[in-house]
Design a protein around this nucleic acid. Structure first.
Lengths: 320, 320
DNA sequence: TGGGCGCGTGAAAACCTTTACAGATCATGG
DNA sequence: CCATGATCTGTAAAGGTTTTCACGCGCCCA
């Protein structure tokens, strides 16, 4: 079986207490003893059993991370950021994919709650009350969602939207469509709000119905967008924008000549297609890292808002 | 604090032993008692502390999953499959992204090893000897790699390659390039092997140097491929193929008119671009699920090989 | 009516670690 | 040389759960 602290203690001729001290607070044990214990522990390949340690310290060294859909390349980027920072801090991360199912979220978190020091909820779709309840049960940091009293990392949507609309306006666009994401998405509501604030007088805004935040969502709503006779369209996210692009191409609509398309997120894919997608880049790595920092430093109510950046590529051009 | 088994026991007027039995082996406790305990446990929101349970049972209810790069959409698909199956079996999953760094892999696994019932190594890049060593320390299942004596889930590369080459040959291609992936990738070696076996006499094969298995890898090697004067190119994976497509478009090379492009994996993205990518679909969800099954059922030496399927789309056509 | 059996339950030990507390050792100053 | 304090180490309890063992009760059969 695995080597325990007792094995080390016996081999070193000391008590278990001395072993644990030698390893976790070296300054309180006599140097000679400490070195001997450390050496023996190493030679035996001893690693403290984290479950046992967690039982007594109440800290597990684990983090939970919830994402709505790993199939959307936006989320893997965040996961990578979380991972990197968590591993630096010697924490492991539990990942759970909720498949865009709001009902599954709370249950998954509660199951994880017992074995983590905190959870990162990435773009959670559940109700605000639920989140608030959860936050009282386990240290919680929200990524891309804001709930009063709960720590969060978000991006400057308003500024991002301003950049996007200014860009389109400068290109002569005066009638713009917005393809809305999931009703349950805070980010979607936030984008709509920003968009309305930013377009106010300069631009006529056409809002479509809500779509699933995926390629298929864009495909399915593309014809409606064309029928709306706009010269530009802003999509809830890049995946939806790519869906639009796809359907436009199929219908022989030239981008950006006939219509300009603008996305949100800046997933790696956005730069790979033809025409490359103009999009508002949101912080991903940084958001993940900031989230972990907040969690580990126990900043339970802090809010961080990271900057956004318009990436101008080939899918936007002068209005027809 | 959290609700413990004692709270439930007290509330139900029974001992802790009865509570644990009512929940984990319901058949041994009197129905009336069992139902009452279950009801009270539920109303109190009791979930056993997994650390404490793990301490005594030696099972943690956790799985470890290692992937080389979550940024490659192939891996999130596998992760989703693993997740789904693991959650069904009431297991949580630790995810670790190694960033294509073979040196980091073993260390990450060893850190995880203490707190999981087993690990899934997805396309591990480390040396075979290292994997064999790891497999003696912790139950291990390999995904998309084969090592003697270690359980694994792979795909029928040979058959997939046969489908791909037959397709190209039928279209009149006689000189085909292969863009190789990482030298450390078993999948790459396997693809080369299959390709050589399958092309033997019918086709002249041109192999390029190794590239990173990403979009950039395809971009960087595209001009070499053109210089090789082939009529078709098979890429290590879809991402590389998309890189080729991108560079070809930039150089004004028409696909599939001037050159046919064929990928491997069938990531969701492959169907979203123009022209859509012809590719050999590898099982992703199923591979993940099969891996979890092998791990949980303790089939420590079993091998499973899942079928592959050529997806013919727009990027392949008759040879010029 | 009494012995035995089986079912259902409780008490206690075990898992491995950390930590508060107490004890031991040693040096120093009186 | 002893008392005092400082430094180091050991003992024991605690954390939440599962499991073994034993006990009590009711029932059946002789």
């Amino acid at each position: 079986m695995a080597v325990t602290i007792k094995d080390v203690a016996r081999a070193a001729g000391v008590s278990a207490a001395t072993v644990t001290r030698a390893l976790s607070k070296p300054e309180v044990v006599r140097p000679a003893t400490r070195d001997r214990v450390k050496e023996i522990a190493a030679s035996l390949g001893y690693h403290p059993n984290r479950a046992a340690r967690g039982l007594i310290t109440g800290r597990t060294g684990n983090l939970g991370l919830l994402v709505p859909d790993l199939g959307n390349p936006f989320f893997p980027s965040i996961v990578k950021g979380v991972q990197a920072r968590a591993h630096e801090a010697d924490h492991a991360v539990f990942l759970a994919d909720t498949d865009e199912d709001p009902a599954a979220e709370a249950g998954l978190v509660r199951k994880l709650a017992k074995q983590v020091d905190g959870v990162l909820l990435c773009s959670p779709r559940m109700a605000e009350a639920e989140i608030r309840a959860l936050a009282t049960e386990v240290p919680t940091v929200l990524l891309y969602r804001r709930v009063p009293g709960v720590a969060s990392v978000t991006a400057e949507f308003l500024d991002g939207m301003r950049q996007a609309v200014s860009h389109l306006v400068a290109l002569g666009h005066r009638r713009i469509a917005y393809v809305a994401g999931p009703r349950t998405s805070w980010a979607n509501r936030e984008r709509v709000r920003s968009l309305r604030a930013v377009t106010r007088t300069r631009v006529e805004l056409v809002e479509t119905g809500n779509v699933v935040p995926q390629f298929e969502g864009g495909v399915s709503v593309a014809d409606q967008v064309l029928a709306a006779e706009v010269t530009a369209v802003i999509a809830y996210n890049d995946l939806v924008a790519l869906g639009l692009l796809h359907r436009f191409a199929a219908r022989g609509v030239a981008v950006p000549h006939d219509i300009s398309v603008l996305g949100f997120d800046d997933i790696p894919l956005a730069a790979m297609v033809h025409p490359a997608l103009t999009t508002v880049a949101l912080p991903k790595d940084q958001a993940g890292q900031a989230g972990v920092d907040l969690l580990l430093r126990e900043r339970h109510r802090e809010r961080r808002e990271l900057p956004t950046q318009l990436m101008v590529r080939g899918s936007t051009g002068p209005a027809r």
